[in-house]
Amino acid sequence: MDEEYDVIVLGTGLTECILSGIMSVNGKKVLHMDRNPYYGGESSSITPLEELYKRFQLLEGPPESMGRGRDWNVDLIPKFLMANGQLVKMLLYTEVTRYLDFKVVEGSFVYKGGKIYKVPSTETEALASNLMGMFEKRRFRKFLVFVANFDENDPKTFEGVDPQTTSMRDVYRKFDLGQDVIDFTGHALALYRTDDYLDQPCLETVNRIKLYSESLARYGKSPYLYPLYGLGELPQGFARLSAIYGGTYMLNKPVDDIIMENGKVVGVKSEGEVARCKQLICDPSYIPDRVRKAGQVIRIICILSHPIKNTNDANSCQIIIPQNQVNRKSDIYVCMISYAHNVAAQGKYIAIASTTVETTDPEKEVEPALELLEPIDQKFVAISDLYEPIDDGCESQVFCSCSYDATTHFETTCNDIKDIYKRMAGTAFDFENMKRKQNDVFGEAEQ
Rank of each mutant, 00 (worst) to 15 (best):
D196K: 01
D71Q: 09
C400W: 01
D392I: 12
K278W: 13
N262Y: 00
D331A: 03
H306N: 00
P284L: 03
G21A: 07
D170E: 00
V266T: 15
S384L: 04
I352N: 12
F80V: 03
Y39H: 06
L189P: 02
K264R: 12
K210G: 07
K418F: 13
Q279W: 14
H32M: 03
P307I: 07
R299T: 12
V74W: 10
P163Q: 14
K435P: 15
V398F: 15
R193A: 01
Y117N: 01
F380E: 06
K142W: 01
Q397R: 10
P389T: 01
N36D: 10
D199S: 12
V96A: 10
A351G: 01
G186N: 15
S396G: 08
V110D: 04
K269S: 12
S167R: 08
I321D: 07
L231P: 01
S45G: 07
L92P: 06
Y53W: 03
I319L: 09
G85R: 02
I352V: 03
H187C: 15
K422P: 10
N252P: 15
T248P: 02
A190E: 00
K364A: 11
N252L: 10
I298S: 06
C277W: 02
E42K: 07
K118I: 12
V326G: 08
Q438K: 00
G133S: 08
P235L: 03
W72Q: 01
Y212R: 01
K348S: 13
D331E: 01
M168P: 02
T427S: 05
T408N: 05
V30F: 13
Y197C: 04
V119K: 02
V266W: 13
R218W: 08
K221Y: 15
F109S: 03
R299V: 01
A351D: 00
D361E: 02
E273W: 15
G21F: 11
L31V: 02
Y111T: 01
Q200R: 09
V147A: 10
D430G: 10
Y387D: 10
K103D: 13
P62T: 00
P235A: 11
E432C: 06
K293D: 07
N149G: 14
N130H: 04
V343A: 09
C277Y: 03
E159M: 13
E358T: 14
A243N: 05
P62S: 09
T185N: 00
D2T: 03
G11C: 04
G13W: 11
R423S: 00
T166V: 03
F380M: 02
V255G: 04
L189S: 08
K348G: 12
E3L: 14
T15R: 09
A128T: 11
L216M: 02
A425S: 08
A351L: 05
K118M: 03
V441F: 11
E159F: 13
F399W: 15
Q397L: 07
T408K: 00
C402F: 06
K137V: 07
A128N: 08
K329W: 13
V119N: 13
R173P: 02
K118Q: 09
L304F: 10
A344G: 04
K89G: 02
K221N: 11
N439Q: 01
G107S: 10
C400V: 08
Y421S: 13
S403C: 02
L241M: 00
L373S: 02
L372G: 03
M132R: 06
D196S: 15
L373T: 03
S401H: 00
A294C: 15
L373W: 02
D180E: 13
F431E: 09
I321V: 08
S401Q: 09
L31M: 00
M424R: 03
D385V: 13
D75V: 07
T360E: 14
D405G: 06
C394A: 04
V366L: 11
K137N: 05
L370M: 01
S401A: 05
I350R: 04
R328K: 09
I209D: 13
E432N: 14
V181S: 11
E123D: 06
P37T: 04
Q86W: 04
K112A: 07
S45R: 14
V181E: 14
I300P: 01
F429A: 00
R292Q: 10
I298E: 03
A353W: 01
G113T: 06
V334M: 04
Y117A: 04
Y229S: 03
S242R: 03
L19R: 02
P368A: 12
L10T: 11
R436Y: 09
S316W: 00
I383V: 12
G69D: 12
K348N: 11
N149V: 14
Q164R: 12
P155N: 09
R276H: 08
P307R: 02
C317E: 02
I390F: 13
A243C: 10
E214D: 05
T205I: 06
H32Q: 03
E159D: 08
N84K: 06
